[in-house]
Every structure is written in structure tokens, then in C-alpha cells.
Amino acid sequence: MDIILGYVTTILVFFFTYNIFTLGLNIQFGYTGILNFTVITFMAIGGYVAAVLAMPKAPAGSGIYYILGLNLPWPIAALGGVLAAGLLGYLIGQIALKRLRSDYLAIVTLATGTLLYGLIGNGTSIFDGWQGLFNVPQPFAGFRTWTPLGYSIFFTIVTAVIFVFLWLFANRIYKSPLGRVMRAVRDDQDVVEAFGKNTFKIRMTAMVLGSMYVGVGGVLTIAYITALSPAGWTTGETFVVWAALLVGGRGNNFGAIVGSFLVAVVFNEATRYLPQIPAHPNLIPDIRYVLIGLAVILSVYFRPQGVFPEKKNTFFEVPLGDNSKTIEEHLAGGLSKVGEQ
């Protein structure tokens, strides 16, 4: 029973964190039309920075090297990680969001991802190179004496609460005037600009917000697994998030949940149990990526709006029942007679 529960909690944490990545990408791409081709790098930066803030100094002579090691309490470390991810988004935005075609931003995100992957891997003194960080202290581990399962359940609840909060906030942005302008930017940036709105600022807001969302996911990931190395954030993982968003439904946060569930949980977990072929240890992951790549291409071809398309937004409407008056007469009476639908 404990084994099953432990498995379920792990899957749930996995599900919620991927959901948070997908929400972040939805704010960037689904709302605002920003092509971020290195989603997973923001997860890594968020996770790494939170970890080195929470970890004590690397013991001398251990062959382990990393920066900072401030031994800070987790809430502060987590905040640091999220802000670092946001800062990376801000820097990329400064380079590529100023009135350039969307191709350029895509190129810069991809280039940044490749660059940081190499820098972090080869630069052994930053986050311990290819070996990666491990033995990251778990948040609230000293809070009380936990059983392993008890801690897993506690962590799952924390993750769930954070996810629900972020989901509600993403919805609130969507429905707000800001979200409306973001969607207009997605549909035609030049027109929004001509209407007197600073589209750079709007896109930058979405870029940084989305990056911070992904950063939250990264912090949760490293806090739960207590380790992270470059092998854990290869380019392929970015596609998993893209596939989840595109399958679920761009611009629709509910779709993002369904997509995350289908791609990151059902598909990922199902392929994990395929029999390994000893001569080809990489065959299964490769086939998995072939299918993810196909999912991205096919969903764009057949159903670019996803399984759950963006919902149509209607506003306050004149009550339909009252046919005795024309719309002009209704309007003459002002909005007092106009109800919300």
C-alpha cells in the first residue's frame, strides 16, 4: 500500500510541476504569442538557484563545487530561484522582444538554452557541472519527524496548493484587461502598437511571468527529487511542455491541464514500462521523442486550437427575453438595464 501511495504521490508531483510549466508557456505563447523554445532552461535555472541558496557551502575537498551555498531557509531560496528564472526571461526579452520578427526571439531562446546547457555542464564550479547538484536539503524536513511517505504526501499537498494558486492567477490574468491586450498582441502586434499600447512592455510582462511560472516548477522539482544535473533538462523536455500545450489547447488553461496529464503523465509513464532492449538502451526514449515530435507537428496540422480550444469571451449582454425594445432603446436606458451574461 505504501509503495502504491508513494508512486501516486510522485506521479502527482510530476503532474503538477509539468502543469505549472505548461501554464507558464501558455502565458507566453497561448496568451501573447511568444515562442519560447527553451522552456526547460528556465526550470533548470529556477531549480539550481533555489538549491544553491538552500544548500550549505560545498565541503572542501569533496570534489563538489557550486556557487553561493548560503544555507538559507527554503521559502527565501525558492523565491530566489523563481526570481532568477524571471531575470533570465527579462534578459532574453531585452535582447529579442524589441520590434523583431518572432523568429528572432525563437532563435535567441534556443541559443540561450544551448549556451547555458554547455556553460553549466562544462563550468564545474557553477552548479557542479555534468555531475549536477545532489543532496539538496528538502524543504521543511526538520519541521517534524517525517516518515518518507508522510513527507511525500505533505510535499504533494504543498505542490497542489501552489498549482491551484498559480492556475487561478493565470485565469485571472486571462480575463483581465491585461490578458485581453496580451491576446491582441498575439493576434497582431503592429495594430496594438498603432493603438497606442507599448507592446514591448506587454510582451515583456508575459515573458517574465511565464519564466517565473516555469521557475516555480523548477524549484518544486529539485526540492522533491533533491538532485538536478544537465541530463535532467535536455532539449527534449522542452518539447514535452510544447506538446502538452498544443495537444491540450493553446490559450485555454483547462486544456493545459488535460495536455499535461495526457503527455507528461499518461504518455511518459506508459512508455516507461515498455520492455528495455539491452542492445539499444536508448531506443525507448528515442521512440518517445519521435512520438512527442509527431504530436507537436500533427496537433498543429489537424487541430491547432487543441482538444480544448480557447473559450469565446462574451461580455455583458442585453437580456434576450425582452424583445419589445430595440437594442437602441436598451442602450438609451444605459447599462443599468444591461445584465451580465
Binding site: 525563437a106 518539447f239 498544443l246 512527442i292 515530435g293
Partner: peptide
């Protein structure tokens, strides 16, 4: 996005 997905494929 399609060329990006294609690269993985």
C-alpha cells in the same frame, strides 16, 4: 513550431 518539432523527430 513545426520545424522545431521536426528537429526532435
Amino acid at each position: 513550431i513545426v520545424t522545431f518539432g521536426l528537429s526532435l523527430l
